[in-house]
């Protein structure tokens, strides 16, 4: 797994930089302005990918936590820990960019509607997960307790997703849905999908780097780690 992560990371980094550059250029320069919002809508190219990733990363974290609880696979636990700070960062970016857009467009930085509140709850779930891990002394009980928290928190994900359909919210409903024609012009949609891909690659690259570091940390008594350290003159 260590070798796999080592080999994959640089490729993911290169692909990520390429799609990020292309997505930003197409989104910020080439794509036309919106008929009502003008150029302000362009924050969507950060906001929507970050918001999607905040939920996607949580799903990865909850799934690997379940795998860890059931099969006691150490690597599943490592993937969950490695994902948490990345997911928290995506959530914070989604909340901040949404706030920057909300002030000029809606007229407010923040409103306690169902979408915004449930996304804020997601941020607290990530932070709570990390805090719980840090608070417990024994690594075994920390892993188990945090895994249970991650699984319990997963009920928030459908709430975030469907909040704009179930309740009256200030946040607009989804522009891109699986079963419907996207309510976004194709010239604006393409850069957005590219940005989503770039954010996915960014996550997996970060994950690989963090997983490697965590494996080294946990296996610091294993002979192969000692050999590796010797080879690199650490």
């Amino acid at each position: 797994m260590y070798r796999f992560a080592e080999r994959l990371a640089p490729w993911l980094a290169i692909l990520c930089v390429l799609t990020l550059a292309a997505g930003l250029y197409l989104g910020l320069v080439v794509a036309p302005a919106d008929y009502e919002q003008g150029d302000s809508y362009r924050i969507i190219y950060i906001h929507v990918p970050a918001a999607w990733m905040s939920m996607f990363v949580y799903m990865v974290m909850a799934t690997s936590s379940a795998v860890f609880l059931i099969w006691r696979l150490k690597i599943a636990d490592i993937v969950a820990v490695a994902s948490a700070p990345i997911g928290a960062a995506f959530t914070a970016v989604a909340l901040l960019t949404g706030s920057f857009w909300g002030k000029p467009m809606w007229g407010t930085w923040w409103i306690w509607d169902a979408r915004l509140t449930s996304e804020l709850l997601l941020l607290f779930l990530y932070l709570g997960y990390l805090a719980l891990r840090g608070a417990l002394e024994s690594p075994q009980s920390a892993s188990k307790a945090a895994a249970i928290l991650a699984i319990v928190g997963v009920v928030n994900i459908p709430i975030i997703h469907f909040s704009v359909e179930w309740w009256n919210t200030l946040h607009q409903p989804a522009s891109i849905t699986k079963f419907d024609k996207p309510s976004m012009h194709i010239s604006m949609l393409r850069p957005l999908l590219l940005m989503v891909l770039a954010f996915q690659l960014l996550y997996f690259h970060n994950l690989m780097v963090r997983v490697r570091a965590l494996i080294l940390q946990r296996e610091n008594r294993a002979s192969w780690v000692a050999e590796l350290a010797e080879k690199n003159h650490v």
Binding site: A33, D34, Y35, G107, I111, P173, A174, M184, M188
Partner: peptide, 27 residues
């Protein structure tokens, strides 16, 4: 005491909006 705009989920360039309006097909 406070009025907030609720934006909808439709995004399009101004030319497309104009064309749709002309055709009476604005979402």
């Amino acid at each position: 005491t406070e009025v907030l705009a609720k934006h909808d989920e439709n995004y399009m360039p101004p030319e497309v909006a104009e064309a749709l309006e002309k055709a009476g097909k604005m979402p």
